[in-house]
Amino acid sequence: MTFGARGVSVSFDGTTALRDVSVDVPDAAVIAVVGGDGAGKSTLLRTLVRQVAPDSGTVDAPGKADLGYLPASSGSWAALTVAQNLDFAAGAYGLAGAALEQRRTELLAAADLTAASDRLASQLSGGMRRKLGFLMAIVHRPRLVVLDEPSTGVDPVSRIDLWRLISEEAASGTAVVMSTTYLDEAERAGHLVVLDAGEVLVQGSNDDVRASFAGAVTRSVTAGATPVRPEWSWRRGHARHEFWPDGEPPVGSDVVAPDLEDIVIALSLERRLAGVAR
């Protein structure tokens, strides 16, 4: 079974949030939706969980009983303990008694939260709270899990933990779609969807995205030097990278193999600067 969106467009008060977006979310896969602020990531995810009604297009998603969702906010109730939060989520899906006990024990252990089960959600670190939110989203063994920036604001160690949990969930057959602003993290997903201003710039596996990238990226390290085409360049550490859409940089340029970050920035620039002299 493949869930997803087909040709979905959404607008809010005349502003387009998504334009003709199609995304497939197959079972046992992790789909990472990446893009900058305002790219439409949350809108796409909220459309998948039916919190936003598309103006056109269709959404294929299971019913509420088979859907798990972690919103971009904390994802748990601050005044409840870890265990109480899990119990509430489980109860909402009809889980009770011994089955609930067992599931709670299993999830808390998997997320390394057993020792924190009596702590209030408000007293958890950012990473622990997101893990709790994730557990609440999967407590009922949904067929589709939608995670809105699960790792934003989470320290690197907790991010690794979260990724392990997400990967395990997908390995058990669940379709997972998540948004992220961390491109290194997105590379770990089986399938990428790069959004910019509500449109899909590119999507596919990590290799597909790299292979489909046309153009060249060059690198210059001259300190303080003004780039020849500032609108086509961006800073990467101490160096500046510059995109040449036609794939023909000036002779003698230091051409680099673009990583995902370069590709996303280059494609966004290409879309925004369409028509500007190259």
Partner: peptide, 13 residues
């Protein structure tokens, strides 16, 4: 305000 309303909305309640 806490953003949990949307979570409730997605739950079968």
């Amino acid at each position: 305000e806490a953003g949990t309303l949307e979570q409730l909305a997605v739950m079968p309640i």
